[in-house]
Nucleic acid binder design. Sequence first.
DNA 1: ACTAACATGTAAGCTGTTACATGATTAT
DNA 2: ATAATCATGTAACAGCTTACATGTTAGT
Lengths: 190, 190
Amino acid sequence: MALEHAILVSLLEKPGSGYELARRFERSIGYFWTATHQQIYRVLKRMEGDGMLAVREVPQQGRPDKKEYSVAAPGRAALSQWLHEPVEPESLRHDLAVKIRGAAFDDPAALVREVERHRQAHADRLAHYLAGQVRDFTGPEAPAPLDAGQELQHVVLRGGIAYERMTIAWLDDVLATLHRLAERPPHARG
Amino acid sequence: MALEHAILVSLLEKPGSGYELARRFERSIGYFWTATHQQIYRVLKRMEGDGMLAVREVPQQGRPDKKEYSVAAPGRAALSQWLHEPVEPESLRHDLAVKIRGAAFDDPAALVREVERHRQAHADRLAHYLAGQVRDFTGPEAPAPLDAGQELQHVVLRGGIAYERMTIAWLDDVLATLHRLAERPPHARG
DNA sequence: ACTAACATGTAAGCTGTTACATGATTAT
DNA sequence: ATAATCATGTAACAGCTTACATGTTAGT
């Protein structure tokens, strides 16, 4: 399971609390792995018990105390071992594709609004990624030259950008197909 | 959960046994939704109990008997209802991206072979999809004109093809990045 | 004899989601 | 007052994965 490993990577990049991790999973790490705070707290506790993480209670002024987690030696070793093991290439799980094929047994035109909604969500994500790319990697505020960690973060972000662009283009193809089907004379629908 | 709905779509396209469904989930349906036979048998039983599916025992010669499932009226209604409900745009779960960011804390060059392996897997899938496209939709053996169901299957397949092409191009970008980092003088790494 | 394909299941364990629960501080 | 943000958890349930389990027929 990669949630543990995603947490190890994130904490190596910067130690932090469960709450902070949950927010990172809504942003940068979340571009390729999602997790809710409930999951994160459960896994942090387990990993702490396994000796993978070290905890430090940090008293704060004007805010509740927090537990700052950082990666202990066994955690770093576990990550290193995982990096050297092969993982299976992902298989997709795409509800919308199921819906599109299902539309053959319902009204294809009824899907148009849903597909447009998805297109908008992907366009928003793309805009967000592009802004992040300029801010962190290509803009005047970005460090130059980038270190290895930043280069690797950038290539992952480029993957997210490519994914969103591809998805938007495909959803346009889907919309065009749905419109073509809606214009067919009834006897040709089948 | 979309497994039920994926099963409904598949059985509407063609009734079949749990075993046959499991094979379809390794092929066409599996392009965008995966499931193992254990999952499928369990869900089929539940759906049958809920009255969504009808079963027919089919004796076979030279083979074990099979249970052929088909969609009953309540199943069709449930699919239709789901088609009219919005679903959340998917979030990615990509182990390899976690590994790439993790490589900053290990040896980036050690990831090259893993990335190449993934690239090969995606190239194989792309070849498989392209062959299917010619066989079912664009080749001389394919029906012309396509009916609505076939048009929708084709646009989903085009999505799979676009996904594999995008992924292969991104993995080439990843490989180029890893090679660039490996060529850096040691003082410029970290 | 052995392997592959056909065919269907159970059990245990892990992962993930949703709902519930609490409490402080800061800004409007 | 009210809402938002910070901060951490529990409980119940649903879904998925892995291992185990059985038996037939067809091909080499």
